[in-house]
Design a protein around this nucleic acid. Structure first.
Lengths: 116, 116
DNA sequence: GCCATTTATCGCTTAGCGACGATAAATATT
DNA sequence: AATATTTATCGTCGCTAAGCGATAAATGGC
């Protein structure tokens, strides 16, 4: 899956998408939020707020950013909003990042690292 | 290596560092630059400029950002500066990202993805 | 219906990114 | 020595991110 030959526009779009998802996790507080979400199954906004040193509005925005990137899913349950990690999206992101150096080149450099 | 128990400050620092490295690659042009560098062994700045649709000064800044993050190494050779991917740093980054959901929780969720 | 709780949104300020052109700095070339 | 080439840096502009407090919106409980 995910063969190499694509048009330049498609490649640009893929890079843009990947960059967007990377930007979503390129923030210490959002990384911490992902950790907190990963620790439990479902976490509501307030619980995250109680564990981070930032305001509730800020946490809500971070959660929105993560959700927009697809890395987190929301389910409203009564007053609360329950957030959970989208493990598939996270895995896909990891695969896309790791294929950065795998696609379109002889992947010899990486194997050389085994003996370090 | 890389055991879990750490102080909060250390964890904050680790998250900040990871966020910095992620921010370095969270840009479509920098992703493309990494691809171009990965395609060859050593690439000079001008070669990158000829392959990207942005100005030379901008490329130079992007390369500087990647170098500052440690993902790229520089060697000045005459007038030129030769850039190459730091494969070790890239691999470390991948490991750090993937340990996001592995550390400090029962890693059951991910394995469940096998059958999708 | 009224109040409390929880979350999302709005308005604002501050800081930093991304892009460019112009120019400095370093090295080749003739 | 003078010129060309290559890269790095500077200054500037526009824009978006990140944070906050205040407030709206939605739901639960009394």
């Amino acid at each position: 899956m995910g063969g190499c030959p694509q048009s330049n526009i498609e490649l640009d779009n893929k890079r843009q998408q990947l960059a967007d998802r990377l930007a979503a996790i390129a923030h210490p507080h959002r990384l911490q939020i992902l950790e907190e979400l990963g620790r439990a199954d479902c976490v509501c906004c307030g619980e995250v707020v109680s564990r981070l040193p930032i305001a509730q509005s800020t946490v809500s925005q971070h959660l929105k950013i993560l959700a927009k990137a697809g890395l987190v899913e929301v389910n409203s349950a009564g007053q609360k909003s329950l957030y959970r990690v989208n493990a598939i999206a996270v895995r896909t992101l990891l695969e896309d990042v790791s294929s950065l150096q795998a696609c379109c080149r002889a992947a010899g450099k990486i194997e050389d690292l085994e003996d370090i």
